[in-house]
């Protein structure tokens, strides 16, 4: 009797084990193989792409990558994306760390309602605000400029960044500031000398979030710019289809080039990124 039960258990264990690996392998194939296909195809001729989809290229066409850079003005797109992402990250951190400092360390009337109001912004589906943002940027005379994107990304990230910074600053012991105050530190010095330097982890978390958002943002880059000169990388990718026309494999090369920086950062920092994400998630 017991032997039968034990046997049944190992049988169940066996199917569970097979099922487990089917699931794991399925998701491995789904996430990994398309990327590999794209990478290998980017070295093929267009004829090979249609006749030999799954083999290796007969001759590796590095020329595709030369075409990619020439046709797509990638360097310009990269530069624009770096400018927009770096500026909006620093601007967001500056604005929200000051606000979070006041909310977390001071007492004043209407403090909680004001904080709740800002944090409620997290719930707003930003995509619904296309028309007003379009109008706002136009009335400021900023349409089709990188400044428009920097300001918009800072505005959009205000609630989440305030939330992260406020949560972090709350955990800094008050004694440190009190000691600084006794030593004659002013309001500004308590921020610049005590709270801000101690918020490094919070700044990195919020900064990473804003940077990634700005780097990957597409909708507002699409809506608020029109010239090639103010295109970010993500928006630029959209125009590859018309730029490369029927030279598909050069277009693949251009897409691969846009992906490489993200993957490079991920390969070096994946443990940190995953750890940061999980600790943030557990706290939130």
């Amino acid at each position: 009797m017991q032997a039968v039960a034990a046997q049944r258990l190992t049988f169940a264990g066996g199917t569970a084990r097979v099922g487990k690996w089917i699931v794991l392998i399925f998701f491995f194939i789904f996430t990994f193989l398309p990327l590999i296909w794209l990478l290998i195809s980017s070295f093929k001729t267009n004829l090979e792409l249609q006749t030999n989809a799954f083999g290796l290229p007969a001759i590796w066409q590095f020329q595709n990558y030369v075409n990619a850079v020439q046709i797509s003005s990638l360097p310009r797109l990269f530069l624009n994306s770096v400018i927009v992402s770096v500026c909006s990250t620093f601007l967001t951190l500056a604005v929200t760390s000051m606000a979070a400092f006041v909310f977390a360390r001071e007492k004043f009337p209407l403090q909680q309602p004001l904080l709740n109001l800002i944090l409620a912004g997290v719930l707003v589906p930003i995509i619904g605000l296309m028309a007003p943002y379009f109008r706002l940027v136009n009335s400021l005379g900023l349409y089709d400029s990188l400044v428009a994107l920097i300001l918009t990304y800072t505005g959009i990230n205000l609630p989440i960044s305030t939330f992260l910074m406020h949560g972090f600053m709350k955990t800094i012991p008050a004694e440190l500031e009190e000691a600084a105050e006794i030593d004659g530190a002013s309001f500004v010095q308590r921020f610049t000398k005590v709270v801000f330097p101690l918020s490094r982890v919070g700044l990195v978390t919020a900064g990473t979030f804003v940077f990634l958002f700005s780097w990957n943002e597409f909708i507002y880059a699409l809506l608020l710019t029109s010239r090639t000169a103010s295109r970010t990388l993500q928006l630029g990718i959209r125009f590859f289809v018309s730029q490369f026309f029927t030279d598909y494999t050069s277009m693949f090369a251009a897409i691969v080039l846009t992906i490489i920086p993200s993957i490079a950062v991920y390969v070096f920092l994946h443990e940190k990124i995953i750890k940061g994400l999980t600790s943030g998630a557990l706290k939130g």
Binding site: V95, M98, V102, V124, L136, L158
Partner: peptide, 19 residues
């Protein structure tokens, strides 16, 4: 310290939602 955040919040949340 609060002003920049409140100005931006008004520009990008209060005004747009009202609009």
């Amino acid at each position: 310290f609060l002003a920049p955040a409140m100005v931006l919040f008004t520009m990008y949340f209060v005004y747009p939602l009202g609009f």
